[in-house]
Design a protein around this nucleic acid. Structure first.
Length: 283
DNA sequence: ATGGGGGCCTGCCGGC
DNA sequence: TGCCGGCAGGCCCCCA
C-alpha cells in the first residue's frame, strides 16, 4: 500500500505503539526481502528503544537508542500489521506466523508489529542515524512535496529540457519524493495535463500550477487514510486505501468527472505502467 | 546524461 | 475445475 500518503498513514498508525517503547524481541523468518537483511538484524533490534518514527519519501525510519535506524520500505505489497495486547498480558504469546509474515517485532508493551509482504519487493536495513541521508537508498531522493524545499522554481527547473513524459517525470523520485502511479494520475487529472505531454514542453505557469495540486492531492489522501486509523490496529493496513475517491485512477471507460466535461477516462501504458486520464480535458 | 525496458515476486481475476 | 494471460500501489540496474 505504498505511496507517500499510505506510508504516512502506516507511520502514524505505528507511532503510538512503537515510539518510546523497547523492542523486546525480533523474529526474522527469512534472510532477505528484496535484498539481504543486514547482519545480525534481530540482535541489533532486540533491547533497543525506539526514539522516533520518521518518514522520508516512501521509507519509514525507526530511530533507535543504539544510534542506528531501522529503514523500512513496503515495496508493492508490504503491510505492517499491529496486533497483540498493549497491556502486556500476552508478551510471551507467539502465534504461528501467517504466510508471508517475514519479520515480527514484539514491543515491551505487548504490541506485535508484523511485516507481511507477499511479493517481497519490500526492504529492511539498518543504518547510522546520523548519516541516514547518505544511505544509498535515500541519498538521491528529491524534496518532500509537503516540505519547504518543494517549490514552483524547483519543479520548473527539474522539468526544464526534459524530453520524458510528465507522467515519468513525476514518478521520478529524484525530482519529487513519494509520488507513485495513483497520485501521479490524480495530480495530472486535476491539473488538466495529459500524461503524455513532455515535461520540458509544458509552459512554466502550468508546471508551477502542479505544485499546489500535488500538495492538495497528498494532503487529502493522508486525511482519508487517517480516517481509517481507528481500524488500523485491527490489522488490515489496506483499509482507508480503497476508501479513496479517485477521479482518474482505475476508472477506464467511466465518465470524466471534470466540470462540464463529457469525456471518458482512458487507459494507456507508459513505460510499462497504466496511465488513466481524460483525453478531452487533459491536454 | 537521459530515457526506456527488464526483472524481481506472489496473488487475483477474467476468459476459455 | 483447471490453466493461462494479464494485471498490480516500486524501484534498481543495465543498455543504447
Amino acid at each position: 500500500m505504498p505511496e507517500l500518503p499510505e506510508v504516512e498513514t502506516v507511520r502514524r498508525g505505528l507511532a503510538p505503539v512503537m515510539e518510546e517503547q523497547v523492542i523486546a524481541g525480533a523474529l526474522v523468518n527469512r534472510p532477505d526481502l528484496r535484498w539481504p537483511f543486514p547482519a545480525n538484524m534481530a540482535a541489533r533490534l532486540t533491547g533497543r528503544r525506539v526514539l522516533a518514527l520518521r518518514r522520508r519519501s516512501k521509507y519509514i525510519l525507526a530511530d533507535l537508542d543504539s544510534g542506528e535506524s531501522l529503514l523500512i520500505h513496503l515495496g508493492m505489497s508490504g503491510r505492517m500489521l499491529v496486533s497483540g495486547d498493549p497491556l502486556g498480558r500476552f508478551v510471551h504469546d507467539h502465534p504461528a506466523p501467517a504466510k508471508h509474515d517475514h519479520v515480527v517485532l514484539t514491543m515491551e508493551n505487548g504490541a506485535r508489529i508484523t511485516f507481511n509482504d507477499p511479493r517481497r519487493f519490500g526492504a529492511m536495513d539498518l543504518l547510522e542515524t546520523a548519516t541516514a541521508d547518505q544511505h544509498k537508498l535515500l541519498s538521491g531522493i528529491g524534496p518532500e512535496p509537503l516540505g519547504n524545499d518543494f517549490s514552483e522554481p524547483h519543479l520548473v527547473a527539474a522539468f526544464k529540457g526534459r524530453n520524458t513524459p510528465v507522467k515519468s517525470a513525476l514518478l521520478d523520485q529524484r525530482i519529487i519524493a513519494g509520488l507513485g502511479n495513483i497520485y501521479v494520475c490524480e495530480t495530472l487529472f486535476r491539473a488538466g495535463i495529459s500524461p503524455k505531454r513532455k515535461a520540458g514542453q509544458i509552459t512554466v505557469s502550468r508546471v508551477a500550477g502542479l505544485v499546489p495540486v500535488i500538495r492538495q492531492v497528498l494532503i487529502e489522501a493522508i486525511e482519508a487514510g487517517g480516517s481509517s486509523l481507528r481500524d488500523f490496529r485491527q490489522a488490515d493496513g489496506e483499509l482507508g486505501y480503497f476508501q479513496h475517491r479517485f477521479d482518474a485512477y482505475g476508472r477506464e471507460n467511466e465518465p470524466c468527472r471534470g466540470p462540464d466535461c463529457n469525456g471518458t477516462i482512458a487507459r494507456i501504458v507508459q513505460s510499462g505502467r497504466s496511465s488513466f486520464y481524460c483525453p478531452v480535458c487533459q491536454r
